[in-house]
Simulated scan of single mutants.
Amino acid sequence: MIFLETYSEKKLLKSLVKGKECAFKTLFNHYHKRIFGLARYMGMSVDDAECIVQEVFISIWEGRKKILVNKPFAPYIFTITKRIILKKIKRGTLETNYINNLRNQSPAFQHNTEEYIIFKDLLSHANSCIDNLSTSQKQVFMLSKNEGLSNKEIAKELNISIRTVENQLYRATKEIKQAINEQK
């Protein structure tokens, strides 16, 4: 593994911010095994750990213009990794709890397949509603709900006021609720 010195890391990050794929590949080669190992250490299967590595680097590439080149990169990439792992754990826990609740219901009320399909359909519809939000609403909503950031943290990360975050979050939630209610 190539050791990235502070100077060369800054240079590499500047190239990444400019969209240079060779800088991205260098960072990938330097960090992918460590991210994979962290995911495995956190209990992820091999397949899930590989998916997490991909998600982390997709996130890095998509958000490359926000990277602060004067700050150390390792804490940044591992924070992204931690958030993605926690999101995956939460999603898995939610699905497991839902399935367990279905199993614990009395036999007269069990419609496992039908209810699971309804659950998946509702989840898919909710994700579709989120995708239909404006870019700013979607960004604020995802940082709040998926990443678990506070309004203050979101405001700082996006360089907007807390009031703007609150308004965007309110409007996004209202639109999602309205779209889900219209489906019923």
Rank of each mutant, 00 (worst) to 15 (best):
I2G: 05
I2D: 13
L4W: 05
T6H: 10
T6I: 11
Y7C: 07
K10F: 03
K11V: 13
K11C: 10
K14P: 03
G19H: 02
G19T: 04
G19F: 05
K20V: 13
E21I: 10
A23H: 05
F28Y: 15
F28N: 03
N29Q: 13
Y31E: 04
L38A: 11
M44K: 15
M44F: 11
D48A: 12
Q54L: 08
S59E: 14
S59Q: 11
E62R: 14
G63A: 05
R64C: 03
K66Y: 13
I67C: 01
L68Y: 13
N70W: 09
P72D: 08
P72G: 08
F73D: 05
F73W: 02
F73E: 04
A74Y: 08
R83T: 09
K88D: 14
R91K: 15
T93W: 10
L94A: 14
T96Q: 15
N100F: 08
N100M: 11
N100S: 13
Q105G: 01
S106C: 07
A108P: 04
H111C: 02
N112W: 05
N112M: 12
L122R: 10
L122I: 13
S128I: 09
S128W: 04
S128K: 14
N132V: 01
L133S: 02
S134Y: 01
S134N: 00
K138G: 08
L143I: 02
G148L: 02
S150C: 04
N151F: 09
E157I: 01
L158K: 03
S161A: 07
T164N: 15
V165H: 01
N167P: 02
L169V: 03
Y170V: 01
A172F: 01
K177F: 03
Q178Y: 06
I180A: 11
N181T: 15
N181D: 12
N181P: 03
Q183D: 07
K184T: 13
